[in-house]
Structure formats: C-alpha cells, structure tokens
Design a binder for these strands. Structure first.
Lengths: 318, 318
DNA sequence: ATGAAAGCGCTAACAT
DNA sequence: ATGTTAGCGCTTTCAT
C-alpha cells in the first residue's frame, strides 16, 4: 500500500519512503498497470475521439488541439474513424464505451436517434464538436454552420458578385457542408438571387476532384462571376483549373472556399474563405471533458460557439 | 459463467442459452466492461500509435491506413502525438505501455537508446514505421529514405539539371528528411556535383513557409535550375512563389517535393515528387501487430520495405 | 454443457 | 504514516 501511494502522490507517505519506492521502481523497471488501476478505481484516463476522416487535415488539426489540451493531464485519446458512415460510428462508439472512457468527443450533432440514446445513456461527459446547428446530447463546441454560409453569401453580394455557382463533394454524408450551403442559398434568396447551377460529386473532397468538378461546371454553366465551394480543398482545385485555363481569378471569377487552411494565404492568386478555429475546437472540447472528469461529473453541459471569420482578402478587389 | 461464454462466443454453450443471454443483455442495455475483461484475460484490444504530428496530412493518411486495417478486428488505436520531441515521445510510450497494449506502432527508427530499451523490454509487438534506414527494435514497415533522396538526384541529373538548391524545414527534428537529403547530396557528389546553396528553417513545414523560404533562397542564390525540397508542402509553396514572381516552372526551375500528395497532380504547373505509400505503411504495420497478437507472440520480427517512385512527370520536359 | 473457485493488479475504506 | 481487508468485473481452470 505504501508503495502504491508513493507511486501516485496519494499523500500520507514519508518523504523518505517516497524516494525509496520510486528508486526501487526505477531499478526494476516497474510500470504500473493502468488496466488494474482503472478497474480498481472505476475510472480510466481514456478519452474517446470520433472523427469522420483521418486523412482530412481539418480533423488532424482538431486532433492536434485535443492532444495539446490533454498533454500533461495524464489522459490519452483513443481514436475512431467513421468514414462518414453512421453505422460504423455507432459501432465505434459502442466499442469505446466498453472501455468506460472518462469522456467522449464526437464529430457532429446529427447522429441517428439510436446513437444519441447510446451517448445519453452512457452516463459520461460527451462533447459534440464542429457544428452548433442542432441539439447536442450533452456539451458542444463548434461553429454556426448555416450562418457561416449565409455570412459568406452576404459578403459576396456586397462585393458585387451576382451569378453564383456551387461545387461540393459528398453532400449526403457531410451534413455540415450541407448546412452551410443552405445558409448560403437562403441569404442569396433573401436578396432575390439564386445559384446559377450546382455540381456535386459523391467522391471525397480533394484538390484534384475540385479541379475536375470546376472544369465540368464551367462547361455546363459558363456564365458565373463567383464559385462557392464546400471547402478549401476543392476551391483550391478550382483555382488551379482556372489558372491552367487562363481564367482571371478573382477578376473574372471569385473563388470561395471554407476553413481558412494554411495553403489559402500562400496561393498565387487570391481566393476567399471562411476561417474556422479547428485547433481551438479540439482544445476546448478536451478541456470540457477534463473539467468534467475533475469534478467527477457525468455531464459537461456547456455549449461553446466559436466565431468564424469571412475573409475575402485580396479576392474582393476586382 | 454461461453468460460470459455466451456473450463472447467462447463455445460450449447451448444454442438456446446463447440466444437467451444475448436477448437479456440487449434488454438491459448491457455493455461489457473491457477494463475488467482485459485485467482478467491479461490482454487488451488497444494498439498504441505514436506519430510526430497530427496536423501533417502524411500522418493522417498513415492513421487512416491503420484504422482501415483495424476495422472489424476489435482492436482500437490509441494515439500519441510527440510534436517531434523525443522526451515527449518517451513519456507517451511509457504512458501507453501502462495500458499493456496489444502492440505499438511508432514513427521512425532513431529513438534515443533509453526509448529503444523501453520498447525492447516491454515484451510486446512493436512496429517502427516510415524509415528503413536504421536498426528497428522489432518489426518495421517503411521506405528507404536515403535511397529515395539519391534516386531523385539521379533522375534530376538524367533530366539535365545541374545547379541544385536545397530548401527544408525543421531538419534537426525530422531525421527522415535529413536522410533523404544526405542521399540526395551523396548521389550528386558521385557525379561530381554539389548543391549551390541551402536554406533551412526551424519552423514546421507549410506551404506558406515554403513560399517564403523560396523567395529567400532565390534572393541569395539566383543561379539554380532545380530546387530540392524536403517535402511536397514546402515545394508547393515554392511553386506558388515562382508563379507569382513570373519564374517559368519547370522551364527555368524544376521544383522537387517528396511524398506524392494528392495536390501535386492537380497543380497548374508540374513539379516533381517521389510517391510514398503512406496509407499502406499504416495498413501493413497494423496487420503485423494483428498477426502477432493472434498468435500471442511478443514480437513481430518482420521488416517490410515498400517501394517509392520518382515522378518527374511533366516537370521533366523542359 | 454448466458451474465453482481463484485470481488478474491494483485502490478505497478503514484500522492502527 | 503505514498496514489490513475487501473487492473492482471479468476470465481461466478445473470439476461435475
């Protein structure tokens, strides 16, 4: 018992014995068994993190924020990748719950009812991230997706654009991009405008797909002065198509992405984007779990809406 | 006991009772406790994954391959992010070991001796990934970094390039990029050539940094016909600088990255790169761990070197 | 095919 | 400040 206490600073051990125990532990290369500790203490240092994709840099940055917040706390993230599949998501969450994690961070708020019930019944802190347009099970940290789309539409109208095209990927499965576009279209309509056309692929977003979709769009609907993309990846591809095709950007066509990825500010021609605090979303979500774990609370019960920033930048000057 | 057996297909339970138990479990929403199962069975379904960065898409893709391989196996990845810091790496590995994971996947083979000992003594399957130039503790899956650099140098010489510049980031900490450059320089030297100059930043790689470093390089050493970058991110930044500055790429300067990221094939002007099988590295590493876990072996003992492919593509034609 | 006993490696609660 | 007892929720082993 004294050894157990010494190794985890549980107090009530003489300074001298703490040293002796630690020294001995070092000598024999003792590594405590967290499985036993967790079973005995009825809590783990595991935090489940569920994201739709690992190869999308956006979630890498969220994870990076989570890792930063968790560093030094003794907690460890366990990752699940759903591939935008809600059945897979449910199974992953079920698997995580059987580890009795200290908390769960789950992407999005649009889970099927069954999954919501699973999260609700689990009796542990849950933070849903990225999206504030919906009804979270417990805590949430994210941005207002619909309003982000609307804000961009208003900014583009103010910059004098009138004939809008829409290009997106995997709309069925990425409900956040869909919400943004609904906000975008609603704001256009409020001013009496309508998108000229739309091209949506079911493939995952990539620069290359963005380039291909843009060629396709322009062949079908030539007459636009602004292209609204679901995200920066495909928007960058759109810029590349325009540059290769000799289309003046932003003079002739203003290109609009979403996220404010690092690459955007280094592009040879300017495009518009909306900056999102991806790393901070991860950081704040992990903080909420940590705080709940600290006070042994099974709930987070906080909703943190983080601001986004429309950035027309040099793309506005045409 | 019968219930326990029924729930995990352990056999020796009547068909009828299996059904009864499962039904009852469903009704009361029973979720097994993996902590207790693990303590009792002396093994976990956890696989530790240690990467230097979460916000670098390369490791996102590795993780994606790992997640694919693990999906359906019942194993779950636990992620640690070292931020290219070897002390942090050691601490993360120690933390993971206390969960007695089924195996560990660790980036790189150049850990300090103390960490190597930790991995060696752990008595569980370890796979070191990305880099085959070194002495792995147990298994390894990766590419020959030195040779990859050399192969690119030979290809560039064959394409007629003679005056090479070198641009890199965080060289101190990214030993794999350093190995590639040593291979590159060695192959140049073998043909009697030397790099004209070098600019190395200690910042993490990004498109923006690549753009800035390229401007800096060209101000200092104007006379080059080829720029060798540590990776695609900064190479793309280099291309953007050249395009904005009106430098003909690849006619005047051939730009060379590394990894073969998706973006490369969509760029408005061609750059050279070396394709690397990042997702497959993750997949194969996870497979090795899975196989070792299956046969209850504490070792992997396999070295899988995956091929890379130099791609001058349209960048060669000048 | 089912069950009883023992125990995995710790910690919580309670002595002393 | 240190030690004792009980037990976390399962699985393993051994009976039956």
């Amino acid at each position: 018992m004294t050894a157990s206490r010494a190794l985890r600073d549980a107090g009530d051990v003489s300074r001298e014995n703490v040293e002796k125990v630690r020294q001995a532990a070092r000598e024999i290369g003792y590594v405590g068994n967290l499985v036993a500790m967790s079973l005995s203490s009825q809590r783990t240092n595991l935090i489940g993190v569920v994201v739709p994709s690992a190869s999308n840099i956006v979630f890498g940055e969220v994870l990076s924020g989570i890792a930063d917040a968790l560093w030094g706390s003794g907690f460890q993230p366990v990752i699940g990748v759903t591939d935008y599949d809600s059945e897979r998501e449910a199974e992953i969450i079920r698997g995580m719950l059987s580890w009795r994690p200290a908390g769960l961070i789950v992407t999005g708020v649009d889970q099927p009812e069954e999954t919501r019930l699973l999260l609700h019944t689990a009796g542990l802190p849950v933070v849903q991230i990225m999206d504030m347009d919906g009804d979270p099970v417990d805590g949430s940290v994210g941005i207002a997706q619909f309003e982000a789309g609307a804000a961009m539409a208003r900014a583009l109208l103010a910059a004098g654009r009138r004939r809008f095209g829409h290009i997106a990927c995997a709309r069925q499965r990425d409900s956040r991009a869909a919400k943004r576009f609904r906000g975008f279209a609603a704001a256009l309509e409020a001013e009496g405008h309508l998108p000229v056309g739309s091209v949506v692929s079911e493939q995952p977003s990539s620069v290359e797909i963005g380039r291909d979709l843009t060629r396709e769009f322009l062949e079908r609907h030539g007459d636009v002065d602004c292209l609204y993309y679901a995200n920066d990846d495909i928007a960058v591809g759109g810029l590349f198509h325009c540059m290769a095709a000799g289309i003046d950007v932003p003079g002739n066509v203003l290109i609009t992405g979403f996220n404010g990825l690092d690459i955007v500010k280094a592009l040879p021609e300017p495009i518009a984007t909306t900056h999102t605090p991806r790393r901070e979303i991860g950081y704040r979500a992990a903080e909420l779990i940590l705080k709940a774990a600290e006070r042994r609370s099974p709930r987070v019960g906080a909703a943190i809406e983080l601001p986004t920033r429309v950035d027309l930048g040099a793309a506005a000057a045409d």
